[in-house]
Design a protein around this nucleic acid. Structure first.
Lengths: 239, 239
DNA sequence: ATGTATTTGTACGTATGTATG
DNA sequence: ACATACATACGTACAAATACA
């Protein structure tokens, strides 16, 4: 059962996405929204906080909530988004090839990354992402098999996140990410259509479930000409 | 006057930073926090939402709020942070050289970036950032002089954000950022100690005040071996 | 310049629902 | 079954910033 304030957030966000409410316009006041959606001020304000954090609106005391123009021309790449989810907004033919799928015992390096004991079961997966037939991304996933059991090569070819959330019913909650630029390595040379590039944009992620357990360490290596990372940030974190 | 929930957030965050409350520990329950800080549940929950968004804690219904270990080893580079603020957490000798400071009329390109009229007054500033004597970052700032008047070369050498917030009393509120990797250009060759690198990590930012006015467009070009961008992201945006 | 209405921000209270142990 | 803890949703009151007559 979805909560009321999330539902109101989604309705307002979709009105903004569809340009029914344009950038520069003010939303109805909180009082008006209360009667429009038959909700208390508390509920409306929670929806507005979500809109604010997501970069849809800017609130000003005494004035109102204005729609800002961040969302109109591009989709966000930041946050926690699976490749399958991202690929839906990419124009072009997208495919995934699973070039390595192993269940193994964690060595010293990998057990450290996942904060588990030496020898614990993990999945080690390498996937190449192709856009319009060109191999441009190499994803290396290390997944704690004690938390995420039953993975198969077929699932890895489709969407691991989909399996975790919809088959296992687990909730992916938060991630720490680190972006850097690194010189190419042997895996890049083997699997990526490098086109002469000698560096790769690298996103390392540690991803956690809602019980704060770390289940995944990912290295995502992108050919630099096809890499773009977008972020919406707020200096003032108040709610 | 700082609000109560922000003050409680700061107290709890500092207890976490200082390891008085360790990762893995649970915070006192909301009920207990109410009596500790003599506050209502609403106020406590606002503080906890801030802690959650900032990556300090994970909340679980029925259990409590556990401290997670994201903040222990590193500071975030993401968000809206001035170079002066970042440099305080860098070990090493940091300096800034203002290699270009001009007030000029916006041409077609720059007026488009700042969403102003052709010919409006802007500041165009180029700054080289050195760490331990080595030039590793080139920052190019285009600032709307109608919104941020009175800039000087001296201010640019110190901190423009400091001037905007503390001298002009304006509030920097949000930014849209885009990270990419680009081949070096003539400015890089002129000002950066390239050490043979032929690409740069580039962060483009559009930064806004709290009245949703766009005042700054920045291109920050980093030598790739010294570039690192960290983000904390949540898949579930509820408040 | 002043006062008033509007709008958002903060703080508190109460009740009920849902997940955990 | 029960107690505990967080989540949602309703309400009230007042403060602070803004807009306007």
């Amino acid at each position: 059962m979805k909560s009321k304030y999330v539902s109101i957030y989604e309705q307002l966000a979709s009105k903004i996405e569809s340009k029914e409410i344009m950038p520069g316009d003010y939303l109805p006041s909180e009082k008006e929204l209360m009667s429009i959606y038959d909700a208390s001020r508390d509920t409306i304000r929670k929806s507005l906080v979500m809109l604010k954090q997501a970069g849809y609106i800017q609130k000003t005391k005494g004035k109102g909530s204005i729609v800002i123009d961040i969302h109109q021309f591009e989709f966000p790449i930041s946050g926690i988004t699976s490749f399958k989810e991202i690929s839906q907004s990419i124009s072009g033919d997208v495919s995934t090839e699973v070039v390595c799928f192993e269940i193994m015992n964690a060595d010293k390096n990998l057990s450290g990354k996942l904060n588990i004991n030496l020898g614990d079961k993990i999945y080690y997966i390498e996937r190449v992402r192709k856009v319009d037939g060109e191999a441009i991304i190499l994803d290396i996933d290390v997944i704690n098999a004690g938390i995420v059991p039953g993975l198969t090569k077929e699932i890895a070819k489709d969407s691991i996140y989909d399996y975790i959330e919809n088959e296992l019913g687990l909730k992916i909650s938060f991630a720490k990410k680190e972006i850097s630029v690194q010189t190419i390595n042997n895996l890049d040379k083997m699997f990526i259509d490098l086109r002469g590039f000698d560096m790769m944009a690298v996103v390392e992620s540690y991803t956690y479930l809602d019980d704060a357990s770390l289940f995944q360490y990912t290295i995502s290596r992108h050919r630099p000409d096809r890499f773009k990372f977008r972020e919406f940030a707020r200096r003032d974190k108040n709610v």
